[in-house]
Design a protein around this nucleic acid. Structure first.
Length: 841
RNA sequence: GCCCGAGUGGCGGAAUGGCAGACGCGGAGGACUCAAAAUCCUUUGUUCGAAAGGACGUGUGGGUUCGAGUCCCACCUCGGGCACCA
């Protein structure tokens, strides 16, 4: 390469008149269309053990994509594209969680067909996703509202029904007046509906449940086996809420009823000075039926509890009111008669619905006892060092919840709390008064909804045969096309003819169940349907399920921590036990992205603070939009759109574009295998590139896309510096091409375009991710820090591998170090190889 | 109230117990331009100093360590989860 064929670099960077401009919106749409036409990301061949299953939470089609979608798909796509470049066969399907209330609300308010509304939104989102270049496998697309899909949702329901994991019962359930339907416990947030924010009321209704409690222990035990964020695992652990204790019975004073209670503190039983039932407890209901005031009390409690819950949220103070019952109970250990109460602080659906009240050791009982003038009996003394006044009923101001030494408890006096617990439980079991028990906070999942835009519960009710599953050959039970959505209540239930059928067992009169399944049922198994979304003969092939499950990498929002993510785990365990595959968990690894917010608060239509993704895309292109999001912070952190700078990212991509174009021009008529520039400058550039390749590979593995981009910027800076020093040709191309390859998962369009302009055939996205040359990672010299008493006195460049003695000798030659050491005695010297030397004086 | 998590420049954020502030945004100055935009270059934690150089600095107070943004204890603030769970 001769000097005069090389354009002067400074000149070309300043003029750049001959370099085509970076115009993302003129190149991106064509490339996006080509990827779809070429079926570039459709996986061919078998779904086998070697296939990597990547999945992102499928969206609900409420309108066009919002920023949150663009964020999660940008994270997911960067991850997926990089995995492909590492040589993995990646299965990356996509679909829509398309059943839900907004479609039904649109139908009710505006008279549109919910299906038409839904599919129109889906098409709009699909177009946007393609425009943004997300590399999903479109051949596996599914929508949960397709009859071809919900046929199998109904089949899943029937599998659980046939195996006694789906059942119907009357229970006090959460009713949302706004949505006109019942809700699962997981959908009630702070007493309000997760969707509409209406105050939820409690009603007794007969509903369908999935027996999630059957798997409570396994759902808890398996948490350590999955690679999920600790935060999510902790939320599930708390939601499942396992507690160990004892169940034992108290007898009524008249000897007629035995009433079981659950306690985690059997050691405090001698302090049980009264007894409390949940207001609706059956024993209370029977014995109090004729008492004046009982009915009123029940009503008052139900009304009051909701209001008080709201009024006292966050205060930690809840008034405890109760009703003295017309009978007493007997404490089995003391033999004493103790008064019985009904009070709303005891819940019917936790434990046994009744408690032994120990005001000394439980804050709620303490408050209730004070309010009602009941005895507070000390049954524990603080261990050494404790404050005796805190455990003295005459002076204590709150319950004594610490452990200590048992007192006033007969034979158990003098034992520690832990020993007394064990001994009392041993004795309970020996006397057959009770047994060791484990209680869970988790309840069964209520799955039926009084709505119509969802899969109808595939059950036919028969007066003689009871509820019967719809035979598989009759699935799907379709939503009728002629529903009237303008009615109050459930359109499906009010259809004049739909529900009248014959019983599949006896052939007599049958009535369809008019409820539909919760949308979370749809999404609790969709990752299985992706394995064969177009096969109408089975839900999924067992072989493929065994090979592919669990999903290797799942990405999505933390808002589903105890909803979707818990339900999917339950459904997989249930289907495993029924025999449909061997996997025990749906998602092996989980990445939770943060939220996109604006000026500190969540974006929402009602607040009018939405940033529409396409405002950004239309201005700067998809690459800039994607890279801006990934550069703003680590994926798990929230992004405040007020703080991010798409224009900054756009500038950088433009700079990279020009830099690459200039190099293409600079090396146009030369042999790119050769390079110009000094050997030192070339080596410096190559070292910079290869150390970054190693670091970036690492950052990708940790999903730290923000530092990936920072290091790519460093390569660009090094390459520009080298170009200014006259380095062109092979070393410069190596730098730029490595950069483009490593940027490709993040900004797929500009890298594709520049890759081809650099003269390469084929897509950059089917290349192999760069590998660092180990030889270029070995340094010959390094900068060490010399400290005196931990304060930095000098930075010296020395050869690597120096001994402590040699390093010290060189360090002492430095003027600054010598000055700091003058007149003092060095007591010790710490040496960290190739990094640091610390004189302790 | 209980349980998690987090506090680093004007801003977003980097930092296997070993050079705090990588990378970028924003700011300042300059080059190019008739001018502006775009682009390029320099500079940018605070403070003392003409400079060389020094001091201070990761929410607060202690501690461990030769050495702490990083580990431990207490507290403050913010964010999240749960909320009468016996």
């Amino acid at each position: 390469m001769s000097e005069n064929t090389m354009p002067d670099n400074t000149m070309s960077e300043q003029t750049q008149g001959d370099v085509p401009a970076y115009e993302p919106n003129s190149i991106e749409p064509g490339i996006a269309a080509r990827w779809v036409e070429d079926k570039a990301y459709e996986l061919e061949g078998e779904l086998d053990d070697d296939t990597y299953y990547a999945l992102t939470m499928f969206p609900y089609p409420s309108g066009d994509l919002h920023m949150g979608h663009v964020e999660i798909f940008s994270i997911h796509d960067a991850l997926v594209r990089q995995k492909r470049m590492l040589g993995l066969r990646v299965f990356n399907p996509f679909g829509w969680d398309a059943f839900g209330l907004p479609a039904e609300n649109a139908a009710k308010k505006r008279g549109v067909d919910p299906a038409a509304w839904t599919y129109a939104n889906i098409e709009q989102q699909a177009d946007s996703i393609k425009r943004l270049g997300f590399s999903f496998d479109w051949s596996r697309r599914l929508h949960t509202c397709d009859p071809e899909y919900y046929k199998w949702t109904q089949w899943v329901f029937l599998q659980l029904f046939d195996n006694e994991l789906a059942y119907r019962k009357e229970a006090m359930v959460n009713w949302c007046p706004g949505c006109q339907t019942v809700l699962a416990n997981e959908q009630v947030i702070g007493g309000r509906c997760e969707r509409s924010d209406d105050l939820v009321v409690r009603r007794p209704l007969t509903q369908w449940f999935f027996r999630t409690t059957h798997y409570a222990q396994e759902l808890l035990d398996a948490l350590p086996t999955i690679d999920w964020p600790d935060r999510v695992k902790l939320m599930q652990r708390n939601w499942i809420g396992r507690s160990e204790g004892a169940e034992l019975s108290f007898r009524t004073a008249d000897g007629a009823d035995d009433v079981p209670v659950f306690t985690t503190r059997p050691d405090t039983i001698f302090g049980a000075t009264y007894f409390v039932f949940a207001p609706e407890h059956p024993v209370v209901a029977r014995r109090m039926a004729d008492e004046p005031g009982y009915e009123a009390f029940i009503e008052e409690v139900q009304l009051r509890s909701e209001i008080e819950r709201q009024a006292t949220l966050g205060s930690g103070q809840i008034a405890k009111r109760g009703l003295r019952l017309n009978f007493d109970m007997v404490n089995p250990f003391t033999g004493e008669n103790i008064p019985a109460y009904a009070a709303d602080y005891v819940l019917m659906d936790y434990g046994t619905g009744a408690i032994m009240a120990v005001p000394f050791g439980d804050q709620r009982d303490f408050e209730f006892a004070q309010a009602n003038g009941l005895e507070i009996r000390a049954i524990l003394a603080p261990a050494d060092g404790g404050d005796p006044a805190a455990a003295d009923p005459t002076t204590m101001t709150e319950a004594y919840t610490e452990y200590g030494i048992v007192t006033n408890s007969g034979d158990y006096d003098g034992l520690s709390t832990a020993d007394a617990k064990n001994k009392i439980m041993d004795d309970l079991e020996a006397k057959a008064w009770g047994k060791r028990t484990i209680n869970f906070r988790l309840r069964d999942w209520l799955v039926s909804r009084q709505r119509s835009w969802g899969p109808p519960v595939p059950i036919i009710h028969c007066e003689t045969c009871g509820p019967q599953g719809v035979p598989v050959e009759d699935l799907p039970v379709r939503i009728p096309a002629d529903l009237n959505y303008q009615v109050d209540g459930s359109p499906l239930a009010m259809h004049p003819t739909w529900k009248f059928v014959v019983c599949p067992l006896c052939g007599g009169e049958g009535i369809r169940d008019t409820d539909t399944l919760d949308t979370f049922v749809d999404s609790s198994w969709y990752f299985l349907r992706f394995l064969s979304p177009n096969d109408n003969t089975m839900p999924w092939p067992k072989d493929a399920a065994n090979a592919m499950m669990p999903v290797d990498q799942y990405t999505g929002g933390v808002e589903h921590a105890i909803l979707h993510l818990l339900y999917a785990r339950f459904v997989v365990k249930a289907l495993r036990d029924i025999g449909h595959f061997t996997a025990s968990e749906p998602f092996n690894a989980l990445l939770n992205q943060g939220q996109v917010i604006l000026n500190g608060s969540a974006m929402s239509k009602s607040k009018g603070n939405l940033v529409q993704p396409f405002e950004v895309v239309d201005l700067y292109g998809a690459d800039t939009t994607r890279a801006t999001i990934l550069f703003a912070s680590a994926p798990e952190d929230d992004i405040d759109w007020a703080d991010v700078s798409p224009s900054g990212m756009y500038k950088w991509l433009g700079k990279l574009w020009r830099q690459t174009m200039i190099e293409i021009a600079a090396s146009a008529n030369t042999d790119v295998a050769d390079h110009t520039g000094s050997a030192e400058a070339v080596e410096k550039l190559r070292r910079a590139v290869h150390t970054r390749i190693a670091a970036i590979t690492d950052d990708y593995a940790k999903h730290k896309f923000n530092t990936v981009i920072a290091k790519l910027m460093e390569i660009a800076n090094s390459a520009r510096e080298a170009a200014a020093a006259g380095v062109h040709g092979a070393a410069q191309r190596e730098a730029l091409e490595s950069l483009l390859l490593m940027l490709a998962p993040i900004a797929p369009f500009i890298t594709e375009e520049l890759w081809s302009r650099l003269g390469h055939e084929g897509s950059i996205h089917s290349q192999i991710f760069p590998v660092a040359d180990p030889a270029l990672l070995v340094k010959s010299s390094t900068t060490i820090v010399v400290q005196v008493n931990g304060k930095i006195r000098a930075r010296l460049t020395v050869a690597v591998g120096l001994s402590a003695g040699d390093t010290e000798r060189i360090a002492r030659e430095d003027d600054n170090v010598a000055a700091a050491l003058a007149g003092v005695t060095v007591k010790n010297v710490f040496h960290v190889q190739d990094r640091l030397l610390n004189f302790v004086v």
